[in-house]
Design a protein around this nucleic acid. Structure first.
Lengths: 346, 346
DNA sequence: CCTTTGTAATGAATCGATTCATTTGTGAAC
DNA sequence: GTTCACAAATGAATCGATTCATTACAAAGG
């Protein structure tokens, strides 16, 4: 198990007194090797500290045991959770997952796709940022299939795993109404983001169905700071013109609103209720625990990886499918119904 | 730029009417190739959609352009930030970074080290969990050096990049005293974690130097839930026996405390001040922004990668060094001095 | 005109494991 | 005793790029 650097298959074979083919068989088809030779080989491997050279293995065998995964932001726990789900499945298939970060940068996105191709990964999980579908098609033509994650494939050329943002938006707004809101508002943007668009549409439709109008605060991004800014704006409105509940397009914005309201002396949920989207860890860890719409992150990663292996293993018979999960409400204190009889202190 | 799968160097050479050696030169030493042949080769590459096979490249050249990085928890933004810093440096060296997650599991840790060895990465950045130093030594003997991240190397056999937790602890406690605390407490554990031990020691020493006693609430882990639990415990103490300020060993704990205090009607910082450690994003995004001790995460990753390349590039002349950063206080509302004259509302 | 020098280009050998057609060995069946 | 079937083991060919010793050619110098 110790010894000098660079022992190779040949050395192991020599020490064990067998052929290189046999050593390779011990590694790859142990059931075809007699017990005594197998143990001699294993002993030799141990003694020499032999580590198989993966480059050589995959060059000859034509298959790397790895998948590539390209996400928009590794710092975002949503994506790391999805990645962990995918990694679980990859592990079951004895593959490893190479995680890369496009950081919402077209150049980086293409560079990593190049890298994945050079590494000859068996398949790619990707949340696309730029216009890469065509590129992904040519990659598939060259034998590297891909699955879209957190994006609905509009064509039937791809498998995809996503979440029904329209339904999520509807759920959020219905919840606000159910806890007594009569002047709800939506905070989020830009509407060029499909997910923002969908979440808003779901909420707007639900409001209309209930005969309530939905106020709109459009933002250029979904960041915390922006939430604080909009929160200050809302806090300065006359109490009778101020929304009594807010649906924020994601939790970052919602946390920004929450901080601003706390600073401006607005009570949550008594003066104004808040529901976010994503249910990141910190939603539940906020001083006033934040209600949110939760996506099955781990499951998204798992399903995506399963679909990918499905295509890898059955190149021809595979039919693409679109998996759409319905997100669920997690109600917490930020939308607790305010019962006037019992004034809450906490 | 498109076309069928699997074009190889040989095909490119044939199409361009040159030898394979020349094509390889275009890829690796373009300055040694005449302009016209170079352009013909590039045209052929484009036409065939040739993508170089990285396995073959690294098998022959004996060098993979990649580093391995093994962290305790990819979900923790601290580690992703460190990884991004390391990735920047790797990129400058035209290397890619393979990020893996030991998830504080000895088995996974060893499995990934195996994987890195098989992949023949050029070097490893690691925050060790189990007893792997010996293993890392044999890896180095086989040509794969490593640098310890967020851990001080006790031997001079390794480079390491870490943070002075003792100093950080002292800073935290001194700060609490400076904003008027007379009954400070420390929350954290287990003390088998070096970092907890160090942070406590720093704080305890600072307290002693100031002639103040430091109350200790020891915890079996550093998670949010635990913080809430301890928070409830503290909240139930008699006001005159209750600490007037808490230093939490990390921000997760601190956020748990914060939530508990809010729920129990304790005002922060008026009734009790809180300072955390790590300065994660959500420290500043909490309803009551949390003071914290900030570590230069990005810089830690950069320095670690630089040290690693230093050893990779200069195998022999390299001398190991220990880089220790001093963390800095970021004071926010959770430790704002309470001036009795002006009662704060926000 | 011959030699020298230097730049471009060539292509066979090579990296280390896997594969597979072939050989060896063993026991059963006739 | 010969044949057959089957399992175990062999080792040469192979994957696709890189490397490097060698060749080709042109320009410069004498």
């Amino acid at each position: 198990m110790s010894s000098g650097p660079g022992a190779k298959l040949k050395d192991v074979a020599a020490l064990a007194g067998v052929s290189v083919g046999t050593v390779s068989n011990v590694l790859n088809r142990p059931e075809q090797v007699s017990v005594d030779k197998k143990s001699r080989v294993l002993a030799a491997i141990d003694q020499l500290g032999f580590v198989r050279n993966e480059s050589a293995r995959s060059l000859r065998s034509g298959s790397t045991r790895s998948l590539g995964m390209l996400v928009l932001d590794v710092r975002n726990p949503f994506f790391t959770d999805v990645a962990l789900g995918a990694e679980n499945v990859a592990e079951d298939h004895k593959h490893s997952l190479i995680l890369a970060n496009s950081a919402e940068d077209t150049g980086r996105e293409l560079a990593y796709l190049d890298l994945f191709e050079q590494q000859r990964v068996q398949g790619v999980l990707i949340t696309p940022f730029g216009q890469v579908l065509e590129r992904l098609e040519t990659m598939r033509a060259r034998g590297i299939p891909s699955v879209l994650v957190d994006r609905l494939a509009r064509t039937d050329q791809f498998c995809s795993v996503s979440v029904d943002d329209v339904a999520g938006g509807a759920t959020a707004l219905t919840h606000l109404l159910s806890v007594g809101s009569v002047r709800p508002a939506f905070v989020g943007g830009p509407f060029t983001l499909q997910q923002v668009e969908d979440r808003y549409r779901g909420a707007a439709d639900a409001a209309e169905a209930a005969g309530v109008s939905l106020q709109l605060f459009e933002t250029p991004d979904l960041k915390f700071e922006r939430g604080r800014q909009i929160g200050d704006l809302i806090g300065n409105l006359q109490p009778d013109k101020r929304p009594d509940a807010v649906f924020a397009a994601n939790d970052q914005l919602a946390l920004g609103l929450l901080q601003s309201f706390a600073a401006n002396g607005l009570r949550v949920p008594e003066d104004i209720a808040i529901v976010g989207f994503d249910d990141i860890d910190f939603a539940s860890q906020s001083s006033i625990p934040l209600s949110s719409i939760s996506q099955p992150r781990h499951l998204i990663g798992e399903r995506a990886a399963q679909l990918l292996f499905d295509e890898i293993d059955d190149e021809n018979g595979h039919v693409h499918s679109q998996v759409v999960f319905t997100p669920e409400l997690v109600a917490r204190q930020s939308t607790r119904r305010h019962t006037p009889a019992i004034t809450q202190h906490g």
